[in-house]
């Protein structure tokens, strides 16, 4: 089933086109990595898809009313803000806001399950503003999961996490995809993208340069064009291994 349909999407910021004519579809069970160099428009693409900034073209999400959209799709911005000294539990419970009041039991289960998935249960009563950067990042991911939406759009959710937590979060995302959710996740770590994503969308040069399984996207010609790098990409018994090597002059 299709969870997100983007057709001929174009965005201008300050009268400068960021990208134009972008189309893709995201189906349930997919963990799609959105990759591309800095400034390619990954964040803009996700915000436009959510309907949070003006665009031309179509996004199936932007057509929904804000409250209904929030039940269908969770949005995890790159900017990690926790304005007030709330407990981790209360922070995660903010994900339940779109569901309105009345479902106290469902809310509790959703919060518990999100805390559990991110291994945050021991921290649930701690002041979220006093946590380490990595713990805050995981608490904010848990907030998005507590929303229990079919679709999750996450902007660089694993930036700043230690390797163990980066892998753990990508495994949580992969599990969600296996359970039938759809995820669109922007990433700079191509190694993790290669290992965990079912599909990659490469954004560069004002549009989508490539869209397909990691092995078809992370090829020398596209890497040279989009990132100006070389890399090795090997299939091992432990899964695909991808390592960027050099910057092309």
């Amino acid at each position: 089933m299709s969870l997100l349909l983007i057709r001929d999407l174009s965005v201008e910021l300050a009268e400068r086109p960021v990208f134009s004519g972008v189309s893709f579809e995201l189906r349930e069970g997919e963990l799609v990595g959105l990759i591309g160099p800095n400034g390619a428009g990954k964040t803009t693409l996700m915000r436009a898809a959510m309907g949070l900034l003006p665009f031309s073209g179509e996004s199936s999400l932007a057509e929904l009313s804000p409250q209904y959209r929030a039940r269908h799709a969770a949005w995890l911005p790159q900017q990690r803000e926790i304005a007030w000294p709330v407990s981790v539990e209360d922070l995660v419970a903010l994900g339940r806001l779109p569901h309105g009041t009345g479902g106290a039991e469902a809310d509790r289960l959703a919060v518990d399950s999100a805390l559990d998935r991110l291994q945050l249960d021991p921290l649930r009563h701690r002041d979220a503003t006093q946590l380490s950067g990595g713990e805050q990042a995981r608490a904010l991911i848990a907030r998005a999961l507590a929303q229990e939406s079919r679709l999750l759009l996450a902007d660089e959710p694993i930036a700043g996490l230690d390797p163990a937590h980066q892998i753990a979060v990508m495994e949580v995302f992969a599990d969600l995809a296996k359970e039938g959710h759809g995820l669109l996740v922007s990433l700079h770590d191509l190694g993790l993208a290669a290992r965990h994503c079912t599909r990659l969308i490469l954004v560069a040069e004002g549009g989508i340069l490539a869209d397909g399984p990691p092995a078809k996207v992370l090829v020398p010609e596209l890497l040279a064009r989009a990132f100006q790098i070389t890399a090795i990409h090997e299939d091992t018994p432990d899964g695909p291994v991808f390592q960027p090597l050099r910057v092309l002059k």
Binding site: R47, M50, L52, S65, P66, Q67, Y68, R69, A70, R71, A74, W75, L76, P77, Q79, E81, I82, A83, W84, V86, L91, L94, G95, L97, P98, L140, R143, Q147
Partner: peptide, 19 residues
Amino acid sequence: RGLEALTLGEDAAEGLGID
């Protein structure tokens, strides 16, 4: 409700359906 959502910043609050 809107103020609660704003704990996460403006972008996330909008994502939670707050006008």
